[in-house]
């Protein structure tokens, strides 16, 4: 047995060296909104969404409900775009479904209203085997140098399985819900402040 030990060790080291790394999963979000007859006014310019901390990066973040103060980062799951960029695109797409003139950060034209948003949460929350995608953002509309409404919007969607596609679909659903609620408020001239 002692004679075999070096060979076993060599074989073990060889196996460890030859084993490939974990394949990373890059997830794409393509939020879609049902278009209604677009209103000609007001025009909107969406500013780049700000994000802080770990959600500013592309690595997938998750929180265990048992330790809500600890945010963790996944080893192999990544977003194709940073969540703040995805939210910026979703806000532009959402507003375009109801308003004719909406520009994003790529075309910063003067507009009647400027939409300034800050992404607050974009994470998976796991609780006793159940997981959900949570998205929350604060948004302010600015016109003529004054804030005309500051609201908070959030949504969550269940994550049924561990696959990247399922996780991305849940986040897409959550982002669509939250942005749709914001667009609805803009169209109705109201402001919501979700308690989440």
């Amino acid at each position: 047995m002692t004679r075999l030990a070096p060979f076993l060790l060599l074989a073990l080291a060889g196996c460890a060296a030859l084993k490939g790394g974990d394949a990373s999963v890059t997830m794409r979000l393509s939020p879609r909104f049902t278009a209604a007859a677009p209103a000609a006014t007001p025009s909107f310019a969406v500013a780049p969404v700000q994000a802080h901390g770990l959600i500013a990066g592309q690595r997938y973040a998750y929180v265990d409900a048992a330790a809500p103060g600890e945010i963790r980062q996944a080893a192999t799951y990544f977003w194709e775009d940073a969540p703040a960029d995805s939210l910026t695109r979703a806000l532009v797409a959402g507003l375009r479904s109801r308003f004719a003139s909406v520009t994003g950060p790529g075309l910063p034209l003067a507009a009647d209203r400027r939409v300034v948003a800050a992404l607050d949460r974009f994470e998976e929350v796991s609780d006793a085997g159940a997981a959900r995608a949570v998205v929350a953002f604060d948004v302010t509309q600015v016109t003529q140098g004054s804030a005309i409404g500051a609201g908070r919007y959030c949504a969550s969607a269940p994550i049924a399985a561990a696959a990247g596609t399922v996780r991305a679909a849940a986040f897409q659903q959550a982002i669509e819900q939250a942005v749709a609620a914001f667009v609805q408020d803009v169209a109705a001239g109201t402001v919501s402040a979700a308690a989440c």
Binding site: Y60, S126, G129, A131, P158, A160, A161
Partner: peptide
């Protein structure tokens, strides 16, 4: 880093 646990095991 570690991946999140799979939902519902």
């Amino acid at each position: 880093y570690a991946d999140p646990p799979p939902p519902g095991g």
